[in-house]
Design a protein around this nucleic acid. Structure first.
Lengths: 335, 335
DNA sequence: TTGAAAGCGCTAACAA
DNA sequence: TTGTTAGCGCTTTCAA
């Protein structure tokens, strides 16, 4: 940051006080039209722009929200980030985007950064840890909205999807269609979405009188790599007639292995996945998926956050909202 | 932003002056160990965090850089954003990410926002407009690094790839392999990358004595939609034996149309594209591509920016760097 | 309609 | 080793 123009230099150039310049900058009434014009002219000529940092300090409002997601490179979280940003722009707010990477320490670090920067609110897909710090932030008046999953012991607004039910419905449909030996690459069982989707899988088996067989199940960590290697592990030892994969990154890895081995979908092996990335309807045959209303997840969370921010104390008293959006089962050609 | 703890409240709680608290916060030497411990204890107990806004105002350094890219949802720009952020973190800087959307007005708006927030430097994939404002920012000491393409009339550091040469090489290879009637879905001809890649296409034809035939060429706007509709337009009227598409979004659209129509790649139609998104090696047959060193583009730009920021005036005098990274022609099975 | 001046929370001389 | 204090650039009372 170099030596640059400030408000008092503009004031002297225009022959007015800093207060008047400030009034012009903020479109206050009660400034004589000729004065306003004169000030505007100086601003124009000098390319002066208000120092937003000084303004934030003085106003004690940053007009900024923080967003912490797991990984902006994933199609899921990048859309979330975009949708939140869209809503923020509509509300004239800025957004600070943080890559929490699903690591509790990184999450804690970013919560600190957002706290230090006095953001007016936070949207986060939490790791499930950092309960105390989150509660502290809430208590000190920073509204927080969880997205995708909760943190045990933190009672605030949350927006997520019906993970278990929709998984149940999809697999129930598949089983009724004739699939009997159903492999599953599940998510980590210390993560809410991993747990819920796996519950849906088991419930569908149970509901159709199929015994749960742990040799047909592998637990990954929601990454491409785990999807690839677990698909190999599973398909090389067992011969399921259907494979369910619990998120898009693992599904990409699994699909890659399946195409390398040349399995014919759906005749040799049915394929069903949670999430609906672009590639799922690009490959042949197109993949049957569980599709989350991703954009809606983000924009809904943002809407709630802005209500909390705008209405301040009043709305704050209302008990936390828990919003469950419906994911859709989209039947295409892979089962 | 609620009423919250500030440095003087911490000072009184610890029974010291604000200066001492500040020294502890910033790990200064010359603080008695027992004092340091006492202050740290208070900070710990109260969850106090320094007000970064006040600090930035006082220090006149924001330790923040701005990044303006076209679209964070695209695989290309999201990787750029990530790579820049990685370098920023290593330098202990924050990043503000902006979606310029390739719209000159949006770009101008974001340049203003970054200016107002007194970022220490800017990385941007420019629209090619806003020459004057960019020059003003440079003149007032904010280093700027262009990525992917230049802005005419603005002389600053830039990092890009050898668009024309690599396109020439790829198509030259294809032609020597036997392809003769080569369709092209080119990018917009008011955009640097669109122009350069199209030049490479024409040069390859020329080099092999093939006459340029405008009925085999369509100009899109680098979006999925234009790729889809132009592929239809082109393939429904002409029968090229190879289709070259100038970026990944248009290629996705074109590929979608091709698979809907059931063309057999590569026997009926060869397929060659600029960019190497995940799906290109997922589909069967895997797509032959021109692969940009995307991460490298971003991290190189960021490295240069930090050199400019760190070395201040001294390095600033050096004439702007122009770095051309090599994109690679990756032969797979689609030609 | 305008200006004077206090003060947001912090850092960094300077003094002790 | 610690404290006092000016001031970063702005907004906002209060008074004129």
């Amino acid at each position: 940051m170099e030596k640059r123009l400030n408000i008092s230099e503009i004031a002297s150039l225009a022959g007015v006080s800093t207060a008047t310049v400030s009034r012009v900058l903020n479109d206050y009434p009660y400034v004589k039209e000729s004065t306003r014009e004169r000030v505007k002219k100086v601003i124009q000529e000098t390319n002066y722009r208000v120092n937003a940092i000084a303004r934030k300090l003085r106003r004690k409002k940053t007009h900024t929200i923080g967003v912490i997601v797991s990984n902006v490179l994933s199609p899921f979280y990048s859309v979330i980030a975009k949708s939140v940003e869209d809503v923020a722009i509509k509300n004239n707010f800025s957004t600070v985007l943080c890559n929490g990477g699903d690591k509790p320490e990184k999450e804690a670090k970013y919560l600190e950064v957002l706290h230090e920067n006095r953001v007016d609110g936070i949207i986060i897909s939490p790791t499930g840890k950092n309960k105390d710090y989150l509660n502290f932030l809430l208590a000190s008046g920073i509204p927080i909205v969880f997205i995708d999953r909760p943190t045990e012991g933190v009672d605030c607004d949350i927006v997520m999807v019906n993970n278990m039910d929709v998984t149940f419905n999809a697999l129930d449909f598949a089983i009724k269609k004739g699939y009997k030996k159903i492999g599953c690459i599940a998510g980590p069982q210390d993560r809410y979405t991993g747990i819920e989707r796996f519950k849906g899988y088991k419930k569908a088996l149970e509901n159709n009188g199929i015994a749960y067989d742990e040799s047909l199940v592998r637990f990954g960590d929601f990454t491409y790599e785990s999807g690839y290697s677990l698909a190999r592990e599973l398909l090389d030892s067992e011969k399921p007639d259907l494979l369910f994969v619990a998120n898009s990154d693992m599904a990409l890895g699994a699909y890659k292995y399946i195409s390398e081995k040349g399995y014919k979908i759906p005749h040799e092996l049915g394929f069903l996945m949670f999430d609906d990335p672009q590639w799922a309807s690009l490959v042949t045959p197109r993949v049957t998926v569980i599709s989350q209303p991703v954009y809606m997840l983000g924009s809904t969370a943002a809407d709630i956050l802005f209500k909390r921010i705008m209405e301040g104390g009043q709305f704050m008293d209302q008990s936390p909202l828990k919003i469950i959006l419906e994911a859709k089962f989209v039947v295409r050609e892979s089962i």
